[in-house]
Design a protein around this nucleic acid. Sequence first.
DNA 1: ACAAAGTGTTAGGCATGCCTTACAATAATT
DNA 2: AATTATTGTAAGGCATGCCTAACACTTTGT
Lengths: 143, 143
Amino acid sequence: MSSNGKSLSSGLEDYIETIYAAKIADEDLKGADLARKLNVSRASVSEALGKLVTKGLIQYNSYETISLTQEGVQEAKKVYEKHNILKLFFESVLGIPSLEAGENACKIEHIISENILNEITKFTNFWLDHKEFSKMYTKKNKP
Amino acid sequence: MSSNGKSLSSGLEDYIETIYAAKIADEDLKGADLARKLNVSRASVSEALGKLVTKGLIQYNSYETISLTQEGVQEAKKVYEKHNILKLFFESVLGIPSLEAGENACKIEHIISENILNEITKFTNFWLDHKEFSKMYTKKNKP
DNA sequence: ACAAAGTGTTAGGCATGCCTTACAATAATT
DNA sequence: AATTATTGTAAGGCATGCCTAACACTTTGT
């Protein structure tokens, strides 16, 4: 039991996340576009989409736009959410440049625990609500 | 070119890190011990140790204690350091329980960027130096 | 409509890392 | 020393995910 169940490998999470991002941005997305966005071959995309279809997370017919099923949207939202939390934390608390923040979020989102993610969320909110602190931190560390 | 160079896969990093931890704790470590610590089979350990020997990071003869070469110690220290930084951050800033902090650190240490790790270090130090903030944060969030 | 460009799939491979089974070698215990 | 327990290794497999090459199918543009 491994390619049948619900749980997504981090690879597939990347695919579904990218598909969701395109949907949000109102972009049409075909397999070849995915390949370009993820920097993988069309062959790899073909495999991955096959798995996602099997899992019932996307709808896809060759040469047409990829779309998410309801279940797919749910899954994607989870990952996307994680990604955003991490990225925001890296950027706004740690002052990491957007690109690097995104790249790291993209890797970490697949393995970090729910609990830590929640705490990071809380913490980031706190930090953004207390500019006194962040100003002081910035002063001390980026003179 | 992949099993020859210096760069360690995250799997091998786990092995070398565990070997280093044992060294620090002054424990003798044999292959079977490693298998138990890492929850993998002896066969997997055997393979991994073979790779580490090839890479010149450990010294090892069957039935004897595993030891690190100088280069191995260097590599191990890097990973270990990363691990500790992350764990400390999770525990002391986010208030994550030790076990969970360690488990997450163990996965994230392999993929996070140097730069973010540095910023996390700075931030954690700042946080520990400003108990006023941490007290306030704790009050607001763990009432 | 037809050629060129773009897209998708299949087949065959590579690398990681893990597993089980079966067997070999060494250590420990009696 | 002999038996038992521990430890190590080799072989054969599984799963992930990625690749190239070759081929097939569509879409586009002239």
